[in-house]
Amino acid sequence: MKANTPALVLEGVSKSFDEFVAVRDLSLVVRPGTIYGLLGPNGAGKTTTIRMIVNIIAPDAGRVLLYGQPMGERLMDRIGYLPEERGLYKKMRIGEQLRFFGELKGLTPKQADERASGWLDRLKLSEWRAKKTDELSKGMQQKIQFITAVMHEPDLLILDEVFSGLDPVNAELMIEVLHELKAAGRTIILSTHQMEQAERLCDDICLINKSRKVLEGSLREVKSGAGRRAVALRAENANGVLEDRRLVAGVKNLGDYSEVVLAEGADEQEVLRRLVEGGAKVTRFESVEPSLHDIFIQKVSEG
């Protein structure tokens, strides 16, 4: 595998179920060793896209290339998949379960046991090894399922809503683990609704809405291309300036402070000068980028 071969390429991939088009002519490129965010509202076609990537269903048209090779049965072991809807065998012991899933991904029983031990330690679950799934909390089951997706050291890891069900402590642990995996050269596709997490983790993102791609690029590009500038402002006596439509497009009260969206062509320094000249008492004035959350909502409501 050459270093510059994309980890994953989708070329004009489409899939419909009867009359319903789930994915329409989707193309995307995932660079190796990055975290790629596959974002979109419910029913946008994310799950179908992922199922085509992991070879559960075949696309009607287009190609899926994993490290330059067409996706097929041979390549299934190079992918690790954590589905959004997840499950483990309820009555099976965790240790046996991990060995089973490891073997299904081509590990020997011994390898599977060793990897399982390592991961159980890392995720602080070692003492649960002999327990049955039934006896574990939701968050623990979630982490076990995560292990089944990563234990065979896949080149491409696809995680659908990996943070759901995790408490803040475990969510931090998960973020840490994802950074480690990325540092180890693995490619990760993160499908999520949680924009804050995506913003913290992703290098590149792709936004899908109504079975089409509506936005793609690096996080930087996406944010600067959003064409929207805003200022976080906390000030007294600022009303006069904020009602000037030549400078301010809108104000959103966020409690402790307000988010002031600048009008097109307006300069934030000009706004600050006008505020000070107008006798306002400014305690916070900070240029803010639009959050992924805002971009998501804007794009989805446009579509």
């Binding site: 199922r51 992991v54 070879n55 559960i56 049965e73 299934m76 072991d77 992918i79 998949y81 589905p83 809807e85 997840r86 499950g87 483990l88 065998y89 309820k90 899933f101 299904l104 991904k105 399922q145 089944t148 997706a149």
Partner: peptide, 17 residues
């Protein structure tokens, strides 16, 4: 039914035919 309701099938299908 267990594999379907617990969605284990999805993981299995991504590993075996």
């Amino acid at each position: 039914v267990e594999e379907k309701t617990t969605r284990i099938s999805e993981v299995l299908f991504s590993s075996v035919k």
